[in-house]
Write a protein that binds this DNA or RNA. Sequence first.
DNA 1: CCTAGCTGGTCCACATGATGGACCGAGAAA
DNA 2: TTTCTCGGTCCATCATGTGGACCAGCTAGG
Lengths: 269, 269
Amino acid sequence: MDGASLSTRDLSGSQSVDRALRLLALVGREAKHGAQLVDLVEESGLNKPTARRLLLALMRAGLVEQEAQTRRYHLGEEAYVLGTLASRRHGLLELSLKSLRSLSDITMDTSFLSVRRDNYAVCLHREEGTYPVRTHALQVGNHHPLGIGAGSLAMLSSLDADDVENVLTANRKVLETQYSYYPVEQIRDDVAAARRQGYALNPGRIVAGSWGLGVAIRFPDGRIAGALSLAAIDSRMNVGRQPELVRQLRTAAERVESKLRKMFFPVKA
Amino acid sequence: MDGASLSTRDLSGSQSVDRALRLLALVGREAKHGAQLVDLVEESGLNKPTARRLLLALMRAGLVEQEAQTRRYHLGEEAYVLGTLASRRHGLLELSLKSLRSLSDITMDTSFLSVRRDNYAVCLHREEGTYPVRTHALQVGNHHPLGIGAGSLAMLSSLDADDVENVLTANRKVLETQYSYYPVEQIRDDVAAARRQGYALNPGRIVAGSWGLGVAIRFPDGRIAGALSLAAIDSRMNVGRQPELVRQLRTAAERVESKLRKMFFPVKA
DNA sequence: CCTAGCTGGTCCACATGATGGACCGAGAAA
DNA sequence: TTTCTCGGTCCATCATGTGGACCAGCTAGG
């Protein structure tokens, strides 16, 4: 973020809103099975009454709903509605779906769309490949610090050197605690390699035998929009096959970028 | 709302969060051109500093962003991401898209998907018809009180009598001020007619010459999921053509409902 | 050139609304 | 029965958000 959105510095209050929205993001992360109150309390650092109160507010707004049976919290319909309304400006998934499909058709491997969210990468879509042995390391909604994972690494590598360091610094604590098997120095090397080659490779760094290749997608103005990636078992991503996969990824990314251009500079009606 | 989401009564605080989320909904409503600060202040009833402070919080969370040039507020990428994550549970649009397309293909008229949001109906999608004369009364993101408009009326008519009255009471003020040409008594009559016929008809009540037909979509448990509707100029919705259009709408709605059933009770893998 | 009217944005004294330690109840495990 | 975990809530305290007043930029127009 850094100089993030231009305009105004903050210095401002509204921290209960901040807290509520942090909770909202946490609930979203647990898209699959819903979030438990204790976990939300834990992850957010808030205490129980506060978390509960804020969740009630989110529920009043329809952004979150609570399953009556399990008492778990899920994203609500309003979140979906807002997302639909936002897709007018941010519809990267819609623009990429076809490309992901053909990518998985051609390569037989599972393909992904990720976007940057703060200093993390979120997986927005997973398009199953047809090859019978598949890795399930990355699921929709999953978060990893930028640099961890092929698509994530592709995005990190596309930032300029300063930003890379900023991101790594911001993530230092998480990296050390939750990704201790993946030293920061390793990420720096991976970034350098990705820069040299023009694509990101994850040679089983997170789950042994589960490899990934990724390329970034840019907005017409050069900002990073997201990344496309492919995942497969190591034997399907050997040096022999890599160039072809990268070629496919690049074509797919270019197709998406051209759609983005059309979205930003539409032909006059 | 009423007995809305089960679980807990509120009595709770967190009103700044409520306010912020109300603002978020307002920004979403202005999906097309973005919202101006003054308008948000006006519509929300908040005062400027408060609105601004809350907007800053929403921006920090990425749910809202501000265009540097025009200073207008738009939904941010995080809204899109959350929406995508929520579509796992609430993906009505995805389920309906194909049906809307074929609906517009067959009838040549423009079709819509709306969902209920509190006591309003929001238009989630507009699928253009091919017939050269089209009505543009309803756009994606538009809100109308339940009962105003074909899809909206279809949803209202599907509630039981008590709920209908609750909704109308809750909306009384808005109806009187912003829809004064559409007396509440008229809505009650329209609801009764829709009940009798099993579909909702809007014979140009909002924009003269712009007619609409709507049917509700229900979740497997009977709750209203949304509504499909068709819009056209009056001459294309005369009594002669209506039965055929209604038949098409019904088939489409049934197809969506069957997909919903599959979503809620998936076949075991 | 200056004024008037509109916009977006911010300051800061005040008191209202959010906070969180302590507590309750339900269900599961022992 | 006891114990543990989890969801949920109460209420005295004070940190927090509030909003009237204000500044600044822009456009119209006299």
